[in-house]
């Protein structure tokens, strides 16, 4: 989902930057407030960011014969809500843009939008929606993480198709081509992300349920 440095036309790069800024600014405010209100949540915030770091470093092979990586946004979103994770996602993307030449500064706005904003709001929407339907907690976590992962890559495909419409078939034609690269490859990886998110959530609930209750990170009924 990393759009490479310089690979978005100037106007598009600026527009995505403008679109992402308010989310990150409000996210930073929410993050600061959460840390003041519930300072004991710091370790769990670190673990949520850590999960993003690990998962976005794992280039996994896919059935399409290419490699891509999960995002890890789902776990933190379920614990901290979507706003705070926009900031954590941006930190991961900055690390990769500056040290790994993956993604870039000019494309940071677009990449933050797909991974940190769309990714976390989809995870949050799925989580809240399915919790309301009273589905088993692990099923909810799995779907929230996997669909968030898919949504990020579909967003990237749309961003690229908007910037580079096919000369013959236009936006739709280009979208189909970018989706073939990103979205299809991502399906098994999104499933893997779902399983890994359930795994880490199991470990957190087994060991840190008291801390999560004190810091008001999960609904009481799903904590032991």
């Amino acid at each position: 989902m990393h759009i490479m440095e310089g690979y978005l036309p100037v106007k598009h790069a600026i527009a995505w930057g403008i679109a992402s800024t308010p989310f990150v600014v409000f996210g930073a405010y929410k993050l600061k407030r959460k840390m003041e209100e519930d300072p004991q949540a710091k370790l769990l915030l670190g673990a949520s960011g850590g999960f993003c770091f690990v998962l976005s470093a794992l280039k996994l092979p896919s059935v399409t014969g290419s490699c891509s990586h999960p995002t890890g946004i789902g776990l933190g979103t379920i614990l901290f809500g979507p706003w705070i994770m926009t900031v954590m996602g941006m930190i991961v993307l900055l690390f990769q843009a500056l040290l790994l030449a993956h993604g870039g500064l000019t494309t940071l706005g677009a990449n933050v939008f797909s991974m940190a904003i769309v990714g976390s709001f989809v995870a949050y929407g799925v989580f809240r929606g399915l919790m309301a339907l009273r589905l088993p907690f692990s099923v909810v976590i799995f779907l929230a993480a996997a669909l968030s992962d898919m949504a990020t890559y579909i967003t990237t495909s749309m961003q690229l198709a908007l910037s580079f419409p096919d000369p013959v078939s236009g936006f739709t034609g280009a979208l189909a081509k970018f989706m073939a690269v990103f979205a299809v490859t991502q399906i098994p990886l999104a499933l893997s992300e779902g399983f890994l998110t359930v795994l880490v959530m199991n470990l957190l609930r087994a060991n840190a349920s008291e801390a999560m209750r004190d810091a008001r990170l999960l609904p009481k009924e799903v904590l032991q």
Binding site: I3, M4, C67, L98, L105, L160, D166, V181
Partner: peptide, 26 residues
């Protein structure tokens, strides 16, 4: 098993052969 990010880059140059990236990684 090449990276999807790199494949997207190749695809961009296929769709718009005249596009030149205007910024390079620092």
């Amino acid at each position: 098993f090449s990276g999807a990010d790199g494949q997207a880059e190749t695809l961009i140059t296929q769709i718009h052969p005249d596009y030149t990236p205007w910024f390079k990684p620092l």
